[in-house]
Amino acid sequence: MSDTAAAVRAAVGAVVDPELRRPLSELGMLRDISVEGDVASVGIVLTIVGCPAAERIAREVTDAAASVDGVARVDLAVGVMTPEERRDLTERLRDGRAARVMPFGPDSLTRVIAVTSGKGGVGKSTVTANLAAALAARGLRVGLIDADVHGFSIPGLLGLVDADGRTQRPTRIDELIVPPIAHEVKTVSIGMFLREGEEGSAVAWRGPMLHRTIQQFLTDVFFGDLDILLLDMPPGTGDVAISVGQLLPHAEVLVVTTPQAAASDVAIRSGLVARQTGQRVAGVVENMAAAVLPDGTTLDFFGSGGGAAVAEALSAPDAPVPLLASIPLSPALRTDADAGIPVVVAHPDDAASLAIAELAASLATQPRGLSGRSLPLRPR
Rank of each mutant, 00 (worst) to 15 (best):
R138H: 01
R368A: 08
A58L: 04
V39W: 05
P259I: 13
R380C: 01
A263V: 13
Q215I: 02
S2A: 02
P322I: 13
M288T: 02
R280K: 07
M29V: 02
E199M: 07
P208W: 06
D107Q: 11
G340P: 01
V292A: 04
S371M: 13
V101D: 09
R206K: 11
G143A: 07
S189T: 13
F104K: 08
R172L: 14
L359C: 08
V127H: 02
A204Y: 10
A14W: 06
S201A: 13
A163C: 01
R31V: 10
F223W: 09
E85K: 11
L354N: 00
F302A: 13
R169L: 09
A99L: 14
L230R: 02
V266I: 15
V321L: 08
A182S: 15
R59L: 14
P379W: 03
L158P: 02
E199Y: 04
R94L: 15
I190Q: 12
V149E: 05
V292R: 14
L89F: 07
M192S: 03
P103Q: 01
A364R: 06
P234K: 10
V292F: 00
D107S: 02
G296N: 11
A7N: 10
T277P: 00
D38T: 15
G245C: 12
G123C: 05
R94D: 14
V292D: 00
